[in-house]
Design a protein around this nucleic acid. Structure first.
Lengths: 205, 205
DNA sequence: CAAAAAGTGTAGCGTATGCTACGTTTTTTC
DNA sequence: GAAAAAACGTAGCATACGCTACACTTTTTG
């Protein structure tokens, strides 16, 4: 924390990246508290001293991971929405990506990690929300607003509606997924859920 | 685990209950991994030996808590639905209770605790799901089905619809709440969210 | 290629944890 | 009220952890 800022030599850069990716792996496996910094070094190679010079302490390591990775897991969702698509198509595509995202084991573990341990780091939590889920939601909001302005939809509060649509898709899957009881949702079932949410949403706008 | 089963003497019963409630408190404060069994005894009184005779080990203590408490946090939700209420009234009442539940700090902490640590205990996770969230969802499902049979609503798959309605309410609040960034949602805002979800749902049935 | 900077390896300090052992005191049982 | 059972208190074992110190080797820089 109050340490010198390490200059990034090639070797150092490489080490830092390896530390981060291995640490993510360990954190996901064990959770923040149980994960051991020594174990990270053991798997990553390099030395404990270097790790501590780079990240200050365990928390610094965790924060660096969030900065680097947590946000990018939301990126694919935003690409599903092209303004020139019809609402039904756009929402359907978005819905499929959202479900895929929810069921992806790695993203899921990462998500759980964030939920577990971010509530004691308000600044990071804010950062995560703003650049992760909220950004995605804002994109969906703009998409809806666009179609409202085109006269295709009638929505009072597009932001609220965007949340409602996402929520409908996730619904009770979320809790199942989080406690590890993932029904290995066959494609027809995903199809059915997306179609139902889109239909219900479109019926109300 | 492989220990004698403790006979329940009055004193013992009392101790066990105190252990459980204090342990819940400590687990909520610190999370499962970080919480210390010694700390539980320190706060609860009694002795470490007694605790270990009663619950076997730390995990046993955690499991006993889940058995006793985790399920009861869902109970109030089910009472919101009386079959003879109109769908709008019933769903509105259910919606308000669901939001209240989501924002209740203690239930929230408990919920987070469950999410954190239950995914490595499949049996417990199943038990929790079946007797907690799923039971609530089933109640809502029956409520909807009842009104379908009365001709008040048209719903293909009431179970799916129940999930969608709940999901709409929770929507993006869930993630905010979980990472501790709870907007202290004023009553008008809750009102607005519930009303919107009910309206949107009713427009689609 | 030499000086400076960065990365390495290891040993270990201080502390905390889960859990057990065991002798004493309290509570329950009949 | 005495024998049996349960609860208590304490001390401590074994282990693991986060983190620092320090002497060393490798890499980078000019």
């Amino acid at each position: 924390m109050g340490d010198d800022i390490t200059r990034l030599t090639p070797k150092g850069q490489q080490r830092a990246e390896r530390f981060l990716s291995v640490a993510l792996e360990v954190f996901i496996e064990q959770g923040y508290e149980k994960a051991s910094v020594n174990e990270v070094v053991r798997r990553a190679g390099g030395s404990l001293s270097t790790l501590y010079k780079m990240f200050g302490n365990k928390e610094g390591l965790f924060i660096a991971i969030i900065e680097q990775r947590a946000l990018s897991i939301f990126a694919p969702l935003e690409q599903a929405l092209a303004d020139n698509s019809s609402p039904i198509d756009g929402l359907t595509r978005f819905g499929h990506r959202l479900l895929d995202f929810l069921l992806e084991p790695e993203a899921l573990a990462m998500y759980r990690l964030v939920l577990n341990d971010l509530h004691r780091h308000p600044v990071m939590a804010r950062h995560f929300l703003d650049h992760g889920p909220f950004q995605t939601l804002d994109r969906l909001t703009r998409y809806l607003a666009h179609h409202v302005s085109q006269g295709h939809l009638i929505i009072d509060d597009p932001r609220l509606a965007a949340g409602e649509f996402s929520g409908m898709l996730i619904s009770d899957l979320h809790i199942q997924v989080m406690v590890g009881q993932v029904p290995n949702l066959p494609p027809e079932e995903r199809q059915r859920r997306v179609a139902s949410a889109v239909r219900r949403f479109m019926a109300s706008v």
